[in-house]
Structure formats: C-alpha cells, structure tokens
Measured scan of single mutants.
Amino acid sequence: MLDDRARMEAAKKEKVEQILAEFQLQEEDLKKVMRRMQKEMDRGLRLETHEEASVKMLPTYVRSTPEGSEVGDFLSLDLGGTNFRVMLVKVGEGEEGQWSVKTKHQMYSIPEDAMTGTAEMLFDYISECISDFLDKHQMKHKKLPLGFTFSFPVRHEDIDKGILLNWTKGFKASGAEGNNVVGLLRDAIKRRGDFEMDVVAMVNDTVATMISCYYEDHQCEVGMIVGTGCNACYMEEMQNVELVEGDEGRMCVNTEWGAFGDSGELDEFLLEYDRLVDESSANPGQQLYEKLIGGKYMGELVRLVLLRLVDENLLFHGEASEQLRTRGAFETRFVSQVESDTGDRKQIYNILSTLGLRPSTTDCDIVRRACESVSTRAAHMCSAGLAGVINRMRESRSEDVMRITVGVDGSVYKLHPSFKERFHASVRRLTPSCEITFIESEEGSGRGAALVSAVACKKACMLGQ
C-alpha cells in the first residue's frame, strides 16, 4: 500500500517536472537572447534605426563620474514606483581627507489618484512632500541643488532636461508624456511658492545606482535594477552614441532593455503563462523582457503555473481556492519566502493557508518547484541581457580580458534567497573573457542622484555659470 502511494507521488512529481521543464533555458538559448539583445542595442544607438529599435539606448548626458572633490548639501528625489523618497545628502571631506556622503531620508507613498490623475496632481503632491521634508529638517530658507531620480523612459536633451516617452509600472498621470519632466517639477514648486529649489540633474535609477557604486569602486561602469521592473545602464564610447554629437570619451546610456521583445525577438521563448500575464497587464505587448524578470510579474506567473497544475490534477487534489483564482493573489514576496523555507515546509504551508488552501507535504514541495522554475528562468533571462552589455563593452574597448564592476539594486536581487547566485553564475558562463565584480548599492537611487548633481554643480562652477 505504502509502495503504491510512494509510486503515485513519484509519478505525480515526474509529471510536474515535465510541465515545469518549459521554463528551462539551455545555454544556447541564452546565447541567442544575448546576441539578439546586442543587435537591438546597436539599432538603438544608431541614428537611422533608433526610432524602430525596441531597446532605445537613451543617452543620459552623464559623462563624468564623481571624483571626490564636490562638497555641499544636496536634496535628492526618487520616483520610480508607488513609494517616493526625499533625501538630504551631505557631501563633504571625511576623516583623513576621505570623501564622505551622509544621508537623511523619508519615504512617502503615492496615492492612487496622483498616479493615475493628471501630471499637475502628481507633481503638486511631490512638491508637497518636499515642503514637508524641508519643514522637518528646518531647511526651507536654503535654496538647495536638487537631483531627481526618475525611473521611467526619458529622452534627455541635457542633464536637466528630459522628455517622458511613456509611463510604465502602473503610472498613468495624463499630460506628462511628451513633456519635460524637470519643467513639470519646477512648475509645481513655483505653484507652491513656499520654498526654492535648483533642479540641476535628472537621472534614471540605473544611472543613480551606477554612480553610487562608483563611489565604492571606481571600476563600476554598469548599473542595473532588478526590482519591480528590470533595466540597466553602462558607459558607452561616445563615438557609438549617434544621437549625441561628439566622439570623445564616454557617456552613460540608459538601455531601457525592459522593452526588448516588443518587436518579436522573444516570441519563441514566451510561454502561455507569459501571454496571460501580458494580456492582463496595463501595457499589453510592451516591456516583454521586463515581464519575464521583474517583481511586478513574478508572483503572478507562479500563480498561473499553480492553476495549470491544479487543472492537471497534480496539486491540491485538483481544487483551487477562490483566493488562488484571484489575479495578483500570489505576491512576489511569497516566491522569495517559499524558496527561503528551511525544509520543514512550515513557511510554505503558512503562505498557502493564507490563500485558503490546506496543502499536503507533496503540495508544498511542488509549489516550491514552481517558484524555483519561474525565478530561475528570470535570473537566466536577466543574465543574457547583462552578458550582452558586458561583452559589447569588452569588444568596443578591444580588451582581451576586461575587469568590470556592476552596481545592482532592486528588491528581487536583494531579497530573493537564490536569485543573485543563479544570476551571477549564468552571467559568468556567458562572459568567459571578463572578470566581473557585483556590488549592491546602498540607498543607491538617492545618493547617486545627489552625486550626479554634485558633478553638475562642479561643472557649472568651472564653466562660470
């Protein structure tokens, strides 16, 4: 009897593995994704193909990295998701002549009506938060230079001027797309009239992360975010950046690689679950690469896999709870928690219980395998993109072996128990001629924006502006 049951459990697990095998990517698959990513990057950089390229390769006008001589107080704003952060950054000489960066910050959550109302409502709310922060720190009387981390696709015309191309991540505030974001912020500050600010720089969160990590390690020339969304930036040779005049030196390019796949480059790798996630998203047909990796989508992918296993009578005796059938019910943090389970399955059992399920031991094991399959594919897909960037940098610099540091931020990278190990191992397999160091950014977005502002202020002083 026991043997029969054991055989049935083994057969069930084997069927589960057959279904989950769809998520496995072979090294040849990853090399294919990497080569296609490089081709799209090239198209994004070139003037004649930029418009139709899915990977936009947006110039950021960040050319210099901090040298350690900029000092002063800077205000930093960070808008990239449902939370908005205001930070005071003091850049100065530390002990023994070292450079020191001290920060104080406060988080504000953005109400739904500000995210989806008008641009005026959104930026009025942001300036209200700045006003509140300055009151708390008794700094209303000071006109501070301000660095703005704005983590949406922007076409820069200068370091302090950028046109919002399109909202992502659930934002829909009308009247912002096609307009200068810094102008919208300046107008809102003017409307309030109770404080003055000098907006000197606007950067993407990947750029802010790279600059913040450069402060720790001067070989950091790539910034990457794996959180709600997924994106990367890197220092490109100016001669390859056709959208900006000049051939000397390097400029940081914001790849906006989340949109890779929007022209069909990933079609052969998309599964039924991916198509369902895409169809029910706020932007169907867009940001397809990001939807395979980002935390906004990972939990939902797992939920759809679990429903398939229920329908195949391989999980929960073929019956799903009402909660499990509800879109968004299986949160991405559950994926991390399930994979963090120590082996007694308590954590998995508790999560499934909150979803109205009474799982068996085998159910718990199957749910864990589903989570591992989805998150491992995410790590491997992400590795193909980064390997594409790094191999490109090595080739354009004609280096036999390139040493490089990548600064990384984002909740999936930082909080998932195995993502970074799987990701690092896969990147290294795909970049055999590179020695890569990964560092995690601390308060990256805010500190990085302030350091970019410090560079901009120093330049302005040198130019006598």
Rank of each mutant, 00 (worst) to 15 (best):
G448C: 06
L357H: 02
D187H: 06
P417I: 01
D135L: 05
E177A: 12
G410Y: 05
G117L: 07
E248R: 06
P284L: 05
I126F: 15
D311P: 02
T405E: 07
E300L: 00
S263P: 05
T149W: 14
V427P: 01
V244G: 06
K39M: 12
S100N: 10
G258L: 01
H105F: 10
I404T: 12
R85V: 14
V226K: 02
Y273N: 01
N254C: 07
R368D: 02
E290M: 05
D365S: 06
E435S: 05
S396Y: 04
R345W: 12
V86L: 10
L134D: 01
E67W: 13
S340W: 11
K161M: 12
V374R: 00
R46H: 07
E14R: 05
R429C: 15
A370C: 06
A379T: 07
N283V: 07
V455W: 15
P145D: 04
T65Y: 03
N254R: 11
S336I: 08
V62M: 03
E27T: 05
E96M: 11
E256P: 01
V389F: 00
T255P: 06
T431C: 15
C220H: 02
G147K: 01
S411I: 04
S433A: 08
L30V: 12
G285L: 03
L77Q: 01
E322N: 09
E339A: 04
M115W: 11
G261P: 01
F419C: 00
R43L: 15
D158G: 09
G162F: 12
D344M: 05
H156Q: 09
D365N: 13
K291F: 00
S383R: 01
V71T: 09
L122K: 14
K15G: 14
S441E: 04
R377T: 00
R192M: 05
M210H: 01
V408P: 00
E9R: 09
R155T: 08
A329L: 06
E95L: 13
Q347V: 13
E216A: 05
R43S: 11
H50P: 02
Y125G: 02
K12D: 15
F74K: 05
I163K: 12
K172Y: 06
D124R: 01
T228K: 11
A425G: 08
E221F: 02
F171G: 12
L88F: 04
M402G: 10
K420T: 05
G81M: 07
R428I: 12
V338S: 06
K39I: 05
F260D: 00
T60V: 06
A114N: 07
S426Q: 15
P432G: 10
E319G: 11
C213R: 07
Y273V: 13
I366T: 12
H416L: 11
L164N: 15
D135F: 04
G81P: 15
A370H: 01
M41D: 02
G162E: 14
S281D: 12
T118C: 11
P145L: 05
Y215L: 08
H141L: 10
V226I: 10
H137R: 07
V89G: 03
E22N: 10
C457K: 12
D124E: 06
E28T: 02
P66F: 05
S212K: 01
T60F: 04
A456T: 07
E290C: 08
T376Y: 03
W257T: 02
E112G: 11
N240I: 05
F148A: 13
G183Y: 10
R422N: 15
D113Q: 14
V305R: 02
E40N: 05
C434Y: 02
V412I: 07
M139G: 05
E300M: 00
S411K: 04
A456C: 13
V154Q: 06
L144D: 04
G117E: 12
H380I: 10
M34A: 07
G448P: 06
S151F: 07
L122M: 06
E120F: 06
M298Q: 11
K414H: 04
R250I: 04
A188W: 03
K32S: 08
M8L: 11
N179W: 14
S212W: 04
C213H: 01
A21L: 06
K142S: 10
M107I: 09
E9C: 14
V427A: 12
Q219H: 15
T255Y: 04
G193Y: 01
T118S: 08
V427Y: 00
W99H: 15
D42A: 10
Q26F: 09
T332P: 04
K32F: 07
D132Q: 04
K291V: 01
R325H: 15
L355T: 02
G464E: 07
R186M: 14
M235W: 11
Q26I: 10
P432D: 14
G385W: 03
L355C: 04
M57T: 00
D341H: 11
L2T: 09
E221M: 08
G285A: 10
D278S: 04
T326E: 15
K414A: 06
M202G: 06
E95W: 08
L271E: 03
T103C: 13
R403A: 13
L144S: 03
G94K: 03
G68T: 15
C434T: 07
M402V: 08
A114E: 14
G178C: 14
E48A: 09
M393T: 00
E268G: 04
N350S: 06
S281E: 10
N179V: 14
L122F: 12
E265W: 04
Y349N: 07
G147R: 05
R377C: 00
S426G: 14
R303A: 02
S340L: 12
G444E: 14
Y108Q: 02
A188S: 09
V182I: 15
S445T: 15
R368G: 08
V338W: 02
T332A: 14
V200S: 03
G328I: 01
E256V: 04
S418R: 15
D278M: 01
G328F: 07
M210Q: 00
R369G: 08
G117C: 01
T326P: 08
R369Q: 09
G97L: 11
E22K: 09
R36V: 08
V203G: 08
S353A: 15
R429I: 10
R308S: 05
G170D: 11
Y61H: 07
S433T: 09
T362Q: 08
K414G: 01
N240H: 04
R43V: 08
T65P: 05
F84S: 05
C252T: 02
I189V: 14
L271C: 06
D4N: 10
S441K: 08
I163S: 14
S396E: 14
G258P: 08
I390S: 02
N166H: 15
L288Y: 15
N231H: 15
E372K: 10
T149A: 09
I211Q: 01
E22G: 04
G183D: 13
